[in-house]
Design a protein around this nucleic acid. Structure first.
Length: 424
RNA sequence: GGAGGGAUUCCCGAGCGGUCAAAGGGGGCAGACUGUAAAUCUGCUGCUUCGGCUUCGGAGGUUCGAAUCCUCCUCCCUCCA
């Protein structure tokens, strides 16, 4: 299957520059994708574009992931409605390290033919002076051209600093630099990057008379219109320390039917005909949730590994289907594994002098809920379970409720789990 | 610098001096139905020892009583220079 047939089938092509497709058919291509180190981990939103590199490398092309050590210092205005704060150097450095780890997991840096190669645009910007930049780069694009970009137009009303305005020039120069010195002919990215990317091809044309190519993938969207990549607890990160594999797994498992059909094409490397079969059988028996489970498995294994996935599955099954007795049966080790990644709260042992009112337990003693009013409401609404059993307002926590004499599992609603650790 | 307009609970937004913890919408949460889906319906959405208490940009003031009136301050927007 041709590269672009596959990418299209997976819903990964939005804008494409004429000639790009032909280039990929003709030769092995080095192409780059840049991400700014705005956090010390990428999130599933970044993964949406990163998958492009994964698929393209599998087709024998060389991915050049670029970390924006320089661009991260400027701030990309694309898709942003307001000026952002600048990150300090130390933070950027720390962030870059985190992002690099994730590149290594997803891309093959030791491939015999087309190994991924990391670049950092700080390398070529750190020694460039302002005058040099203005004379050699800025001279080639007009203000008129730059102002026509959506990222700029959208900010005319609210205002935008010169710093952010110049972002497209910086990113454009990256492309030029990689083109000139490393033979990189193509840039890819999310569709919000189109403006910045074309600034690059334009620069290459004007500075060098060269021809470069590009295409973008659509930003990941959800059928119900809500933002992709957010869970109750915020962004879904690739870093297991920030989003535990259990939560990561649950994030995918909870995809709606409609979304999971798209996600499985975009985020897994399963063959397309296999995916079609899965979708078909899922439509026949949607309640089995095969599609969600496969999606969750594939992505979790890819990002966190087989073992972490297995643990997430075990934990899920006990947390969602286990009874109070099942929980009581687990030993300390098993409990810790199952409850790995569930947010924890602590309770002083003195205060458990049983019995302890549920409401005080939830609010004052553990802080799972912010106030007694809210705790009372939740219990009244029949949404609180202790150790997988629903409780009423008259319920009192006692030492009989301790799992392995030190834990209490609290659940609010269907999906929110909290682990209470009783400390002596 | 001059002239206006504005700031309300997570967000938007309404709010005759008393009946305002504050309409309505959004969002969020929960319950029912299900499949840990979507849609739908319902409830909740400041704190509380359930007596009350603290909220309407900030500080004062008028009044029996203020989100609502007055003064000063801060910030934001529009127009003029």
């Amino acid at each position: 299957m041709k590269l672009f047939d596959e990418l299209r089938a997976r819903g990964l092509v939005q804008d494409i520059m004429p000639g790009t497709e032909e280039l990929f058919e003709k030769e092995k291509v080095s192409f780059y994708w840049g991400v700014d180190p705005t956090a010390d981990s990428m999130h599933v939103g970044n993964l949406g574009a990163l998958m492009l590199l994964v698929f393209m490398q599998r087709h024998g092309h060389q991915p050049i992931p670029l970390i924006g050590g320089a661009t991260g210092m400027i701030g990309d205005p694309s898709g942003k409605s307001a000026e952002r704060n600048l990150l300090d150097e130390e933070t950027l450095k720390h962030n870059m390290e985190g992002v690099l780890v994730q590149f290594r997991k997803l891309l093959d840096f030791d491939h015999p033919d087309c190994p991924a190669r990391l670049e950092n645009n700080y390398d070529w910007f750190k020694d460039m002076g302002a005058l040099e930049f203005l004379r050699n780069v800025g001279k080639h694009l007009t203000i008129n051209y730059m102002m026509a970009k959506d990222s700029v137009k959208n900010r005319i009303e609210t205002g935008m600093s010169f710093t952010e305005f110049s972002y497209q020039l910086i990113q454009g120069y990256d492309f030029y630099h990689l083109y000139k010195h490393h033979g990189v002919k193509v840039q890819v990215g999310g569709s919000d990057q189109w403006g910045n990317i074309t600034a690059g091809t334009e620069l290459i044309r004007r500075m060098d008379g060269g021809e470069a190519f590009a295409f973008t993938c659509p930003l990941v969207t959800k059928a119900d219109g809500s933002k992709f990549g957010k869970s109750e607890s915020g962004n879904v990160w690739l870093d297991p320390a920030q989003t535990s594999p259990y939560r990561f797994y649950q994030f995918w498992l909870n995809s709606s039917d409609e979304d999971s059909e798209n996600f499985i094409k975009r985020f897994t490397t399963l063959a397309l005909d296999e995916i079609d079969q899965l979708i078909e059988s899922h439509r026949q028996e949607p309640h089995l949730r095969q599609l969600q489970q496969t999606l969750a498995r594939e992505v979790t294994v890819m990002v966190h590994g087989e073992e972490a996935w297995q643990q997430a599955v075990n934990a899920s099954s006990i947390l969602f289907k286990g009874s109070r007795e099942d929980l009581m049966k687990l030993d300390r080790q098993a409990l810790l594994e199952v409850l790995e990644g569930v947010p924890t709260h602590t309770l002083k042992r003195e205060s458990t002098v049983d019995p302890l009112e549920v409401v005080s337990f939830l609010a004052t003693e553990t802080g799972i809920l912010p106030s007694k009013s809210e705790a009372t409401r939740s219990v009244k609404q029949n949404s609180i379970s202790i150790n997988n059993e629903k409780v009423g307002l008259d319920f009192k926590i006692s030492s009989n409720d301790l799992l392995n004499n030190e834990f209490i599992l609290v659940q609010k609603g269907k999906k929110n789990k909290y682990l209470v650790i009783v400390e002596s």
